[in-house]
Amino acid sequence: MAVKISEKALDHVIDEMVDVVENSKDEIFNISEGARSEYERLVRELKETKDQVIRLIDDGDQLEQRVKFSRQRLAEVSKYFDRYTEAEIREVYENTHNMQTKLAMLRQQEEVLREKRNELERRLVNLANTIERAEGLASKITVILNYLQDDFKQVNEMIVDAKEKQEFGLKIIEAQEDERRKISREIHDGPAQMLANILLRSEIVEKVYQQGEMEKALEEIRSIRVLIRSSLYEVRRIIYDLRPMALDDLGLIPTVKKYIKTVSDYNNLDIDLVVMGRDIRLQQKYEIALFRLMQESLQNAIKHAQATMIKVKLEIGSNRITMLIIDNGKGFDTQIKKDKSFGLLGMKERVEMLDGSLNINSTIGKGTIVSIQVPYIN
């Protein structure tokens, strides 16, 4: 009975969290897209306004020169009015007056357009700040799915019914990259706790050193070094998971290369990358999804399969993207639904969002092959 009550309470908490995350997702998306659309529109309007200002300046300068000549002509006619007929004098006067009036109107229009240009530039600066803040918030939310998956793997043991577990996993996927409150707690419980442990171990080193036990002090220092390395890696992982800058700046292929080199160096692992097809930038949703799929597959191969060799193949064709992740790990039985399988559910959900297919072939003791195919037309 207590378990049932706990499950109901957990479902209630999860439902509320998903609702909050979905509302936040919609709000952030609307703010970002609205600001971006307005920014693009203002950029076009600013360009048109600047072109109009330049044209008005040119027209005004030409008209001003004509007014100057007309005024000279008017002065000549006024001085020697007895040489000209009344109609000629009136014509010169009216032409001069009309050009002066038109020049004044052009200068007034130029001033109005200058003020409009300045106002547009100010609005663009404000919109750029809004877009930057929205993107910054979105990038901080990106890491949430990983934390939700890791934490709820333990909670998953409390959920008995298979259908409830499936729905639970799908709700977590729907909340991907949208929940942000938990990140601060994860940093506090992760790297912060490691640093506190390092401080405590350093005090132990000091006491052991004062007691003259040099070997024990050296052993503690080695342990501290391991803790520092783990803490540094954890901090870098959190920063990188927020959103790799290279993904926006350079695209999918350079980011994948950099990530694989980093993971390979840190884990002292042989990871072979093969890139085929066209080296082009993809739409953002494809770059993010494919990078996360590759990232999740590598983490599974390293953490769970304990692989010693991994091969990643990425092929970008004219109408399809194919990704293969092959490892020589311990493998698993794909027919057995494990409790802690939210990572695979997340991958499946990502691929389905892109109308693609995900196939996982694994044999116990013989490794795993993850095959991802996504239709794409650039």
Rank of each mutant, 00 (worst) to 15 (best):
Y209V: 04
K348P: 01
N268I: 11
I360L: 03
L127N: 07
R185Y: 05
E352P: 03
E234S: 14
Q335S: 15
E33F: 09
G251E: 11
L290P: 10
D150I: 08
E76G: 07
R55V: 09
K79S: 13
A87I: 15
L103D: 03
V18Q: 01
R181K: 11
E111N: 12
D150A: 10
V3H: 04
S24C: 05
Y376A: 00
Y233L: 06
S362F: 02
Y286W: 05
Q211N: 05
V155Q: 00
G34W: 01
Y376R: 02
I377G: 12
I280A: 00
V18H: 03
V3C: 00
K25H: 10
K348E: 15
I183W: 03
M1Y: 02
Q72G: 13
Y147T: 06
F81N: 10
F81M: 07
A289E: 01
K330G: 00
I228D: 00
D355W: 03
V374C: 00
R73E: 09
E174K: 15
V20P: 01
M276N: 14
E213L: 13
I228T: 12
E157Y: 11
E132M: 11
M214Y: 04
V351L: 01
F291H: 12
Q166I: 08
N197D: 10
M294T: 09
N328R: 04
T255A: 08
D272F: 08
I172K: 02
F69D: 15
T308Q: 12
K207V: 03
E38F: 07
T101P: 00
I316T: 06
E349K: 11
L42I: 15
D82Q: 07
R185W: 04
K8Q: 05
I369H: 02
E135V: 12
A75E: 15
L148V: 04
E157R: 09
N95G: 07
